[in-house]
Amino acid sequence: MIASVRAAWFADRKRPAVWAVTVTWVAMALAFGVGVPYLVHLALAGDPKQAEDAASLLDAVLPGQLVPTGIALFPLFGGAIVVILGAVVVGNEYRWGTLNLIFTQRPRRAQVLAGHAVALCALTLLLVVLTFAALAVVTTLLALVEGRGLDWPPAGDLAGAVAAAWLICAAHASLGYLLAIAFRSTATAIAVGLVWTLVLENAISGLALVLSPLEVVQKLLLAPSSGALAGALGARSQFEGGTPGVIDSAGAGPPVAVLLAYVVLMFGLGTWLAARRDVG
């Protein structure tokens, strides 16, 4: 099993697509998490009537707000990007036919696939850490430029945010992983995954506002659970002028349970499917 994980990590960390997705995401996170709010702050700063909004926007891009600012990015935007990552990592094995090579070596198929799942979880952790690290650097620079103090969040809160963001990413990556195996294709998996998370789940969430029976269903969905976890960690919901995808939540327990269930079920189902089907 360890050999399979090492081999999958060796292959994954050298994939140009993995680094393209990671760099694209970190750039997006900096642009939408810090860059755009700071530019709006600069635009409003000269208007006394907008002074309160301008101050609020500046606070959001300083190190003290790293936890809510960072975690808010993951439910909608980060999740979608990581669905692509999961689909790319596994789907390309079908595209290139490399499963033929790997499955005729020594390990059992389930071990090979489990190795890919573990490597994918490690990649998502790396992506989350890089995101928070980049946000920390840029928010520090902005604090220095604005002459504000470096008021860091407690280490425990920061670790919790990284863990929550990683869980959100792992759950979305597991969806990409399952879809790539189910369709034996990268492109189809990405298309279906994005339609699922960005369109279908949002449509159900919208309907749940008017059809109360759908509220139960909504709590079991990937994107709303991710949004609820971000909300539980202090991110402002969309309805409060916060980031799209973030939902008010009473606690982190239920969304954490749902997301963990996604990780186990999607990776498990994908591994089972790939292990029992013909490779051709």
């Binding site: 050999a3 060796f10 292959a11 050298k14 140009p16 290139w96 490399t98 090579l101 790997i102 390990p107």
Partner: peptide
């Protein structure tokens, strides 16, 4: 069937890891 972005040597190293 091999990973197009890896060298021939790296492709074989990868297969060797799986094969033990």
């Amino acid at each position: 069937a091999f990973y197009p972005h890896l060298s021939g040597l790296d492709n074989l190293r990868l297969a060797a890891r799986y094969a033990g």
